[in-house]
Design a protein around this nucleic acid. Structure first.
Lengths: 334, 334
DNA sequence: CTGTTAGCGCATTCAT
DNA sequence: ATGAATGCGCTAACAG
């Protein structure tokens, strides 16, 4: 019995007699044998492995993205090698990319949030690497494949909703301004404000840091600068909680005197007091989409990088709960 | 120039002349060459790769554990292949283990929460596999290496604290009773109740599902069964939020009329209203510890499985905020 | 249908 | 200090 025959059986090749095939299968089962993937990869020149570079799993969004990535990759027959860069070690990102490349991943998902002064891989390294890289949640300007949440539209619908509910002066608490996502949400807000003919809106903007504590501070700051402020679009749910906290402490009732819309739709945000209206992003879907695009690219073999940059936007959805609705109609927890 | 010389340079072997070494290094840099890890693994018989099997990243705990695992593995020079089993596909776990083994991981971290009717790998497969497996957060009874949070002690200190604060009748909202962690926290609570000479405590127990919504239901149920109930130990922070929500709706003021202690210490739980007292678990540390133990085992070569089962408990810490403190002393958000 | 030959890229062992 | 031979476990290409 030669190794080839075994190889054929394992790979379900047609050219084996049913007899031998059965025999081989039986022995494989008895021995508990499983083929060495490493050797197979070396021989085939394909690893069926994807590299994922993330920024940390502290927040719900990134965790969901990763889940989406893993599930979809698994479904398509790819394994995931995970690397997390929590701290901003400059230049280390090149190292990560090189390492992944050395491990022969067939493609990379770069899920580091797009900073303005970013810890991106250097152009030099990127050009040397021939592996497909799909970027997540960042600017579309360059010539790479980028898959993103439509943060801008999210900011827009949130703000628009607040106006529709009869609030008159709407501030924003942003994420750190170096983050692409934070900026996009801000732009969405700006668009609505422009349409409503607001000018001189700088005093309506507070830069938070994604943490609840900064939402608390943001509310105080904005409210003191604008006593007539009656609503805020808050760029994530954690900071929204901080806002609720501060409003509560200051005796400002939500949603009667003050409206809030958050961003993310954490599982628990429907249990805030009051339940939080928010922009829901389907991060799992985003992750899955990134994998789909990446695998398409890998499978296509062709070196053509980007064809459809515009199709890679995932739309968020406005979830209306009590924190932004003055009428007493909506009380159910959805 | 033979491949050997290059190999020697790459692996920092001493027996190369400084001259050639410099040359080779230069060329490597110019070419942007990096060694093929796959081939190296095949040749060396070592992959420097760990397999991690998780259950999902929906909650803060598992995400933090994974972060801890990745960071520590990276530090020790190991890569991580991640597999997530979100759904209970029975028997599939064997598949996962086999797959990981085929990928030649040098060890596995099994971070699937310990269910009673568990989706554990089958004994058959486990015995065939010669790879070290470290289990996370589960029972210590068997002969494997297990690294866990000390959930029991967590339940104990939380409950004890509530009594110390002058609450008299203390219920518990548990996680799903099939989870080992949920059970352990319950046991901790039971111990205190026994010490306080409570009998017939079944009506003080409500089984939740980790979600905020079940905390809400739990509070209502327990309160209606026990009108004199004045505190609950809630087995995670999300459910605690549900409890706060329900209490608020029913006009029961916290902490004056009712005390709550949660479990986890989510980043935002200090911004609940009121800020939540909770049992903080350092999940990153737990993940890191699992990796440390696993790598020790791998490096030790010896087939001796477990030496120090008892050392692998990580202690949680009680964080006291307002939800369990009647005096108005503590108002800071820590 | 089955076996033989060769090679994936590297590292170990032994020569030189 | 360097090079040549050999093998890791598997598969592709060809031969029988």
């Amino acid at each position: 019995m030669s190794t080839q025959t075994v190889s054929r059986v394992i790979n379900d090749r047609p050219d084996v007699s049913p007899q031998t095939r059965a025999n081989v299968k039986k022995v494989i089962l008895d021995l508990g044998y499983s083929p060495n993937t490493i050797a197979r990869s070396l021989s085939r020149g394909r690893t069926n492995t994807l590299g994922v570079v993330g920024f940390g799993l502290k927040y719900f969004g990134p965790s969901s993205v990763l889940t989406g990535i893993e599930r979809k990759a698994n479904e398509l027959g790819f394994s995931i090698i995970l690397t997390l860069c929590e701290q901003f070690e400059g230049g280390d990102t090149d190292q990560v990319l090189l390492q992944l490349s050395a491990q022969q991943v067939e493609g990379i998902i770069w899920a580091i949030p797009g900073f303005i002064d970013s810890l991106d891989p250097s152009r030099m390294v990127k050009e040397k690497l021939t592996i497909p890289i799909v970027y997540l949640n960042r600017d579309c300007l360059n010539s790479s494949v980028v898959v993103s949440m439509d943060n801008r539209s999210g900011g827009y619908i949130a703000t628009e909703h607040l106006f529709e509910q009869g609030y008159h002066k709407i501030g924003i608490i942003t994420g750190p301004k170096t983050w692409w996502e934070a900026n996009e949400r801000l732009i969405g807000w700006r668009e609505v404000m422009r349409e409503k003919n607001f000018t001189d809106i700088d005093d309506l903007i507070f830069e938070g840091n994604w943490e609840a504590e900064s939402g608390d501070r943001g509310f105080q700051t904005l409210k003191s600068k604008n006593p007539d402020l009656d609503a805020i679009f808050v760029s994530n749910d954690q900071m929204s909680l901080g806002v609720i906290h501060a409003a509560n402490r200051m005796g400002i009732s939500i949603p009667d005197k003050f409206g809030i819309v958050g961003f993310d739709d954490l599982p628990e945000s429907s249990f805030y007091i009051p339940p939080l209206s928010t922009v829901k992003q389907d991060a799992k879907k985003l992750g899955a989409l990134a994998v789909t695009r990446l695998v398409e690219w890998i499978e296509s073999e062709s070196d053509q990088e980007c064809d459809t940059q515009e199709k890679n936007l995932v739309s968020p959805e406005l979830i209306i709960r009590q924190s932004s609705v003055r009428e007493k109609a909506l009380i159910s927890h959805t």
